[in-house]
Amino acid sequence: MSTETGTATGSDTSRIHNIGYRSYDGVRLGRAYARRSLYSQSLRGSFGLGRSAKSKVLPMLLCGVMCMVALILVAVAMATPTLTKLPIKYTDFAIYLQAVIGLFVASQAPQSVSRDLRFKSVPLYFSRPIERIDYVLAKFAAMASALLILTGLPLVILYVGALLAKFDFGDQTKGFGQGMVSVALLSVLFAGLGLVVAALTPRRGFGVAAVIAVLTITYGAVSTVQAIAWETDSAGAITWLGLFSPITLIDGVQTAFLGASSAFPGGEGPGAAAGVAYLIVVLALVAGSYAVLMRRYRRVGL
């Protein structure tokens, strides 16, 4: 080492070319570009793209299940000449397949944020032009986009199938539009909750378990209590109980505003007034998730 260093010191810059170090004179695209790069890397990562073959299995499988169910529904619709519309509403699809969506969030939210926290890569991001807000926004948007692909793609399949089956164009387009708005809301809500839970539990197994707990146990609890309320004739409570789990929140919002039929016991669902409360809670949860993430990353800065 010492001899090499000795000669190099003696002749400064003239040696740079000999050794082959090339400096970089090209453009530096800055903060917005870095944020976009982080977004696309995280979005691709949610489906295992750019990661090991092993990590592609689960997200691809879940995505496949969603699409397969949609294809089966389309096949049924086409094979049954008497049908004039799809066997299910667009807005029902995500509610029926919530377990698949829950698994996707539980497996991918931790890989999106917990990895950086567990392996302490976060300081490497924050020693670069991007700021905390860029990191949080990119991760949030990427997770929400991944969920939108997961939940929106089957709806697109249903819609295309419905048009091929020559169902009423106006009806189908309206239903499809309502379904897309609903899954968009669901994606943002689930992404926020999933990321918050994952960011607060950097340890691998915990994150997955905690996300499943938040999404499915709350649903189990809420629907059980709702069923009890239905049995005991206190139907008024059913609507308000729905505020306490993510999937029933979405159910409530789409029943109130998006022409969905509620999966609540009795099939009533909230009216417009209660629907506003549902919408407010959803938006508050999304905003709250964002705020918690920002706080979380202030602590781990460097």
């Binding site: 990661r51 990590s55 950086d116 302490k120 490497l124 020693s127 670069r128 032009p129 460097l302």
Partner: peptide, 17 residues
């Protein structure tokens, strides 16, 4: 931060890439 590089003291590398 655009013109400076930083190498932290602690481990900061994800093992799976």
């Amino acid at each position: 931060r655009e013109r400076v590089g930083y190498m932290p003291e602690h481990d900061c590398l994800p093992p799976d890439v």
